[in-house]
Amino acid sequence: MKVWFALAKGVVLESLRRKDLWVVAILGFLMMISAGALGFFGFEGLQAFAKDLAATVLGLFSTVIAVITTARLMPDEIKNRTLYPLLARPIRRLDLLIGKLLGAIFVTWMSFLLLCIATGLALLVFRVQFEPIMAQYVLCKLLGLAVLCSLTFALSTIMTQAAAATVSFIFAFGSSMITRALVMAHESNPRGAGYGFKVLNGVLPQFGLFDLGGRAANMNWGPVPIWVIGSLFAYAIVYSSAMLFISWMKFNRQAI
């Protein structure tokens, strides 16, 4: 456990010093401030729009950070040979993978929470009131980002950094669309391959489920039931573990 956190701390420190995180935070803040300016200069009644924009900005930037931060971790370790002194220590390769993944998740979470604060301040301009669904939105988003990091991490151990990032972006941004397409395809052919559809749906990452942005942005949506949050939490653990297992299967046998 100590080893994992030591490795994670290294990843976080590197990311902080790289300043990518700050660039993204500033970008997000600027975008929200410009939206805030609209509210300030008399466009009353744009709360839903402002919240929707906030959710979009948060979703977009946190996804970019998650994918970019995670996709380069292992390929960079191998390319820069920083892996050797680490693996020469009394640790298992699985420990290294867990530590690195945890680091990526922490960086992503930190940047997301930073963006949340920035957008929260900008939303104040629109006199947007806090609602419990917003806290749930943040919680579920954190879980979804952890799943995204795990997926990207697994992909980065089996393909190139660029390919892993591209595939992750496709899944992250297209998850809901893929699900809708599956549902419609299943409707068109319910008898043919019903079981196949279920398997495919189970295997594909369900990022759409973690996005409560639609509810948080619009009016009078009550909090999501606790069983849903629990299920999402369980899903995040299971899916991330599966992705970690895939990474380990590949990396454990890999000659470095």
């Binding site: 420190l13 590197e14 790289r18 040979r81 920083t82 050797y84 002194p85």
Partner: peptide
């Protein structure tokens, strides 16, 4: 162990 070539973490 000292590897033949290692860059170590550039930002640490």
């Amino acid at each position: 162990y000292l590897p033949e070539v290692a860059l170590y973490y550039p930002f640490l």
